[in-house]
């Protein structure tokens, strides 16, 4: 126990330094408030997201973590009655400024959903779909191969690229969805509980993949699984829900610190399984 604590303190220091030196803030949330109609879903969320790191959003159901995630690529625009105040800065530019086109945001900030949702088309077409509408001019065969390789799916599907994607297993479908997102060449990938519909083996492969992908991409992941958050993320944001069922950010810290030395009582209770 003592050893673990010492290690945690050491790594906390290390992480604290590394952020300052190597990783820049790519996204900043400033006082984000989200309403669905008259319902106040999230209040005053402010947090940084660092480039080429994995940031995890955890918290009990209804705490607004997925809502906050969707505000980062403006997918909340699709929900009728959803309004947002505050700022979401991407490279310092507010994504909700009038001159910003949400369609173009999503080409830089991709998203992977909870339930694998490949198009009912071939594996090949799933990968090329986003590139095509983005006016990709390069070699499509190469794009398909590199995207599938980055998503650790190439070896399993290289002989059946023309097959319908719906015939793949759930885990393969989810990796295909990741590959499809990579093919658009985003900077940031948002993942909304990407492994919650998968079995433990498929989940393990997704986690390995996330660790590999963070070399090239900034990743934000919402997860219910605290083990997963501690395994894959560098920073963790813990969201809570108040008596009015409004979600808010309770604590944000480097992952090891948040899990080993949480400063807030609620964080400690949540990660030790007292509720949620």
């Amino acid at each position: 126990m003592k050893v673990m604590q010492a290690a945690a303190e050491e790594s906390f220091e290390f992480l604290g330094k590394s952020e300052a030196v190597e990783n820049q803030e790519i996204i900043t949330l400033e006082d984000v408030n989200i309403h669905y109609g008259s319902f106040h879903a999230v209040k005053n969320a402010s947090l940084p997201i660092y480039e080429k790191q994995v940031t995890a959003f955890i918290g009990p159901s209804g705490c607004g973590k997925s809502t906050v995630l969707r505000s980062i690529n403006r997918m909340n625009d699709m929900i009728r009655g959803a309004t947002i105040d505050g700022k979401v800065l991407f490279h310092g530019h507010d994504l909700y400024a009038k001159d910003v086109d949400p369609v173009l945001i999503r080409r830089s900030i991709g998203m992977v959903f909870q339930k694998p949702n490949p198009f009912p088309k071939s594996i090949y077409e799933n990968i090329t779909w986003g590139a095509k509408i983005n006016g990709f001019k390069g070699d499509y065969n190469e794009l398909v191969e590199t995207s599938l390789q980055k998503a650790a799916l190439w070896d399993e599907v290289k002989d059946k690229l023309k097959e319908n994607a719906l015939r793949l297993s759930g885990g393969q479908q989810q990796r295909l969805c990741i590959a499809r997102t990579l093919a658009v060449q985003p900077e940031v990938i948002l993942m909304d509980e990407p492994a919650s519909a998968l079995d433990p083996i498929a989940t393990g492969r997704i986690e390995e993949l996330i660790l590999e992908l963070k070399k090239y991409y900034t990743i934000v992941i919402v997860t219910h699984n605290m083990g997963q958050a501690s395994r894959v993320s560098d920073n963790t944001a813990f969201f809570m829900v108040d008596e009015g069922r409004t979600g808010y950010l309770e604590e944000y810290a480097p992952t090891e610190q948040l899990f080993l030395n949480p400063t807030h009582k609620k964080t400690e209770e949540y990660i030790s399984g007292k509720f949620g």
Binding site: M78, V103, R106, M111, N117, W129, I133, C177, T181
Partner: peptide
């Protein structure tokens, strides 16, 4: 056609029209 397919189209940078005609209608 499942809502998830529309979300996928939009999340890949498709406009609503592109998503309608190149994902939803084919599906």
């Amino acid at each position: 056609v499942p809502k998830e397919l529309r979300l996928a189209g939009l999340a890949l940078g498709g406009t609503p029209i592109e998503t309608t005609f190149r994902v939803v209608i084919p599906a």
